[in-house]
């Protein structure tokens, strides 16, 4: 079953990056100032690039599994009917465009709608701070492919973290209005931050094998970073909220359905085509 577990984990990482990249790309053409429109689009591109690396790896694993003889590789998820047996190769696009939301494994934080600039920045900050510590560790994964992707991604998220931290501070400690908006954003997003550190079953299994990152080991680093930035931003963490989870297992908020409907439309309306 290890192959399927590894694929699940890889898809979880890919889905995280794709969904957040997609969300950030919704700002293109609508940013508050040209220079920041460009900056956020760059970040979206980085995330989509990360997603592609993970999807391509997952596709390879899936195809290897099939060529090794049927059931052992297994179907990487229940939803991919289109990849029916035989020699039909799975690609990055098959994985991104032909899985329904119950097969997506991104955490709930990244699928939240953009809202205003404050909410977008805070979402990016929370997630980049997580990715920073996460990729730092994943570089030591026993899986060489994951480690390689982590090394490349780590450089990018270092920049994302710095950029988003600076914006959290600017908005938190800017005007009364910007501060209020940051507080509203915090109010809406805080409950999704916990899931980042709650390991799914596939994470637990792989962490024991030195393949996946042990989330408990990076949680305190994340909290320290958030505390430090919040201090400068004049923001206070809300009291402990009922943490929302389920994304890693395919139980999402209502938002993901709409996101995927839009994203996947062409592939679904014109199945089996090259684009």
């Amino acid at each position: 079953m290890e192959q399927k577990t590894l694929i699940d984990y890889t898809l979880h990482l890919a889905d995280n990056a794709l969904v957040l990249g997609h969300r950030n790309s919704e700002w293109t053409g609508h940013g508050p100032i040209l220079e920041q429109d460009i900056a956020l689009s760059n970040i979206a591109l980085d995330l989509i690039g990360q997603a592609r690396n993970f999807y391509q790896y997952a596709a390879r694993l899936r195809n290897e599994g099939v060529s090794l003889g049927g059931a052992r590789g297994g179907r990487m998820s229940e939803g991919v009917a289109a990849t029916g047996g035989g020699g039909v190769e799975v690609t990055e696009d098959t994985l991104a465009y032909l899985r329904d939301s119950w097969d997506y494994r991104n955490c709930l934080l990244v699928e939240q709608i953009n809202g205003d600039w404050a909410k977008t920045i805070l979402r990016l900050f929370f997630f980049s701070a997580y990715q920073y510590s996460f990729y730092q560790r994943l570089q030591q994964s026993r899986d060489r492919e994951l480690a390689a992707i982590a090394e490349k991604s780590y450089k990018e998220v270092t920049y994302h973290l710095r950029w988003s931290s600076e914006w959290v501070i600017r908005l938190g400690d800017g005007t009364e209005e910007s501060h209020r908006r940051m507080e509203e954003a915090l109010d809406q997003l805080w409950k999704f931050s916990g899931e980042l550190f709650v390991p799914a079953d596939y994470e637990k299994v792989l962490a024991e094998k030195g393949i996946a990152v042990d989330l408990t080991a990076i949680r305190s680093q994340w909290e320290e970073r958030v505390d430090a930035v919040f201090r400068q931003a004049g923001l206070t963490k809300p009291a402990a909220a009922w943490e929302q989870t389920g994304g890693k297992q395919g139980r999402h908020t209502e938002h993901l359905g709409y996101l995927l409907a839009e994203m996947q439309f062409l592939q679904r309306a014109y199945p089996g085509c090259e684009w």
Binding site: L34, E35, A39, E166
Partner: peptide, 21 residues
């Protein structure tokens, strides 16, 4: 040229706009 609120942002913006990082 480009617009920024301070030197730090100007450098960051320049990295995005004029060097594509």
């Amino acid at each position: 040229s480009l617009h920024a609120v301070d030197a730090a942002m100007a450098i960051e913006n320049a990295r995005d706009v004029y060097t594509r990082r």
